[in-house]
Simulated assay, not measured.
Amino acid sequence: MLTGLTIVFLGGDARQVEVINKCVEMDATVRAVGFERLGTPLVGASYHTLTPALLEEADVIVLPVVGCNDQGEIDAPFSTGTLTLKKELFSAVKEGVLVYTGMAKNYLKKLTEECGLRLIEMLDRDDVAIYNSIPTAEGAVMMAIQNTNITIHGSICMVLGIGRTGFTLARTLQGLGANVQVGVRKEADFARAVQMGWKPFAATDLNAYTGAVDLIFNTIPTMIVTAQIISKLSREAVIIDLASAPGGTDFRFAEKRGIKALLAPGLPGIVAPKTAGIIMANTLCQSILEEFHLRGDEE
């Protein structure tokens, strides 16, 4: 249980609502900022504005999946105003307080370091990333169906990168009857792809494999689907880029050539916010329990 801990939530979308509910269920004292426009009231949590006095009470601070942008602005779709993190606010936070987010940009990393706070990025955890790969794969398939005039079954689908997201996606496409090709960067990934029944190739040799592809799904966060690659694709081909913005696709050239290319980061929160929120909630509560248990042992 989280009895006796004060957790302050700063903004967030529908996923964050699931996390708040879980923390309330675990008997934490929950303060919520940026949820005034939420249609359903947060039972067991209290509503607040963002002030130094509020942050001074916190044992744990929870930010949205993307903590804030490079100007310190927090994603808060349920807020009536703009929430901005500033040093004068975080300077009020007790040293050593845990700050949770999904992934942090440099602004947040620098701010927490300067204020002596411990930043924990949940999406760095293998368990969260693997669980999140399921709604990501489902969302990618949904986008493919919506943006093509062919079935997934029998199509030629290329997945670039078979990390945690790429592996789940390739297996999902295979289950729907697609002919799956995978661009890999490691010998171990090549062997795994063969074992799964996919057709692997070195991602560095992508230029030689794009001719007859119907769908390209990219998970590699560097420029890989270049103008040279796009120039060889059929105009009917569709590119779905799942990498973090700005993605790994030359979207300008794709548009110029008339090829549909879609940037789709953050699919779990779009297609399955409840499931994605439960994943984050369970992991966050377990992490907090572990952190404070360890602190208790040290004391």
Score class of each variant (00 low, 15 high):
3 T>E: 02
4 G>E: 01
6 T>K: 13
7 I>S: 13
8 V>C: 09
9 F>R: 01
13 D>G: 06
13 D>V: 08
13 D>F: 08
15 R>W: 07
16 Q>A: 14
18 E>V: 10
21 N>K: 11
21 N>Q: 03
23 C>L: 11
25 E>I: 07
26 M>D: 11
27 D>T: 06
36 E>S: 12
38 L>N: 10
38 L>S: 11
39 G>N: 07
44 G>T: 02
46 S>V: 05
53 A>H: 04
54 L>N: 00
57 E>R: 13
60 V>K: 09
66 V>Y: 15
67 G>H: 08
67 G>Y: 04
70 D>A: 01
73 E>F: 12
84 T>V: 09
85 L>R: 10
85 L>V: 02
87 K>P: 11
90 F>R: 04
92 A>N: 12
97 V>W: 00
97 V>C: 07
98 L>T: 02
98 L>C: 06
103 M>I: 04
104 A>Q: 10
105 K>R: 14
106 N>S: 15
108 L>K: 15
109 K>V: 00
109 K>A: 06
114 E>D: 15
115 C>N: 08
117 L>M: 11
131 Y>F: 13
132 N>I: 00
135 P>L: 09
135 P>D: 01
136 T>A: 06
137 A>F: 10
140 A>R: 04
145 I>S: 12
147 N>D: 03
149 N>S: 08
150 I>W: 04
152 I>K: 00
152 I>Q: 00
153 H>A: 10
153 H>V: 01
154 G>C: 03
155 S>V: 06
162 I>K: 08
169 L>A: 12
174 Q>E: 13
176 L>W: 00
181 Q>E: 05
185 R>N: 04
192 R>C: 14
192 R>M: 15
194 V>F: 05
194 V>I: 03
196 M>S: 13
197 G>Q: 04
201 F>G: 08
202 A>L: 12
218 N>Y: 09
218 N>K: 13
220 I>K: 09
222 T>V: 03
229 I>W: 00
241 D>M: 14
242 L>D: 06
246 P>N: 04
248 G>S: 07
250 D>V: 07
252 R>C: 13
253 F>C: 02
253 F>M: 03
257 R>E: 06
264 A>H: 01
267 L>Q: 08
269 G>T: 00
279 I>D: 09
279 I>E: 08
288 I>Q: 03
289 L>Q: 04
290 E>R: 15
291 E>Y: 05
295 R>L: 05
296 G>Q: 09
297 D>I: 15
297 D>N: 13
299 E>G: 14
